[in-house]
Design a protein around this nucleic acid. Structure first.
Lengths: 189, 189
DNA sequence: TTCTATTCTAAACAATCGTTTAGTTACTGA
DNA sequence: TCAGTAACTAAACGATTGTTTAGAATAGAA
């Protein structure tokens, strides 16, 4: 492929802007027109770089995953067991904050928009995300001394669903309620 | 107002059909064209009875509330304290079942679709629903003997958010995971 | 039966949806 | 310097969005 005119944008940069738009508005409401304005590039360029709307969304999910991994980065190396997970929960709801309105979690929001016509590629991306979080939690739980190994999978599942619920609830409930919720999640752990 | 030609449909009946469509598809995806087909009446009749799309959705939410009240009806009269709430959680996820696909909760789904342009009337309807559930749970908790009265509000809040999370999670996780989740919710109660 | 009020059908409305394309601009290798 | 190629702008595509409207059908009152 020969070199001609250079791209006037960096794909990693414009997809981050798209990601935040999808996050705030949701998949359905977000239109190509809005993406055009938010990403600061022409529709032609969007289609050239990402194929179509679903392509932009898929890359947005991957971008979101990278952001989450920045938070969970500490989680992987540090010790702390269950308490480290609890701290991640607090970090996670702070991460979803935007002025007064909460955006929840891009993944959770997308999961709640699912229907029988949803692009299978998107479904795969979503379930991969929950699998990653699950094994991350399971790894942390194994640091605990007094834990039955059979219980680890169950507890990890419980924590993943709790986090899913927390993300969803964070769109409607206030800080005090959410902190109280986290406190209760870990009461039985 | 004089009587002329009679309505060929019952509003309570067609709104129930609309409610199930919104529940399955979500607010944004559901179009007037789809509503026309599902409700079995012409667009003109829909607008005559419910003003506009938001009007149909608002009535659908009220219809959904009535359905939920049928489940919680037992909850109000019977005793059983926390255990009664737990049973309601199980009933609730069964209620959201539809063949293999789960529809979650109409209210929760709508809450997850919220953005800064959402019709305020819809937001009011949603928060009223959570308030009703909260006071229902608080009433049940007061049946428990060994409970601090200051704790009741906190625990009721915790249960409401857990139910919200359960509804949201039920769209992605399987029966076994959800039952495990419910078990863990009540472990600390 | 005739008049009038209401509900029906069906077509049309402007606006927007996701996507494509024609034509211009900008860069590079020869 | 200039031909070749990729990226740009901007307009257009058909389909569908929520909403409205013109005209036919139907009912009860006079």
């Amino acid at each position: 492929m020969e070199v001609a005119r250079k791209k006037q944008y960096v794909e990693e940069e414009v997809i981050e802007k798209a990601m935040y738009l999808f996050w705030r508005k949701g998949y359905e409401i977000t239109s190509m027109q809005m993406l055009e304005k938010e990403m600061g590039i022409n529709k032609f360029s969007i289609y050239a770089s990402f194929e179509n709307k679903d392509g932009v969304f898929l890359e947005s999910i991957k971008c979101y995953k990278r952001k989450i991994m920045e938070i969970t980065g500490d989680l992987k190396v540090s010790s702390g067991g269950v308490l480290a997970i609890k701290q991640f929960f607090f970090d996670f709801i702070e991460f979803s904050k935007e002025s007064t309105l909460r955006k929840g979690c891009l993944i959770t929001n997308a999961a709640n928009e699912l229907n029988e016509d949803t692009n299978p590629k998107i479904i795969v991306e979503l379930s991969e995300f929950t699998n990653n979080i699950r094994s991350l939690f399971a790894g942390k739980l194994r640091q605990e001394e007094n834990i039955n190994h059979i219980e680890i999978d169950e507890k990890a599942d419980y924590l993943v669903i709790s986090m899913f619920g927390l993300a969803s609830a964070s769109r409607v409930f206030n800080d005090k309620q959410l902190h109280n919720y986290i406190k209760n999640i870990f009461k039985s752990m």
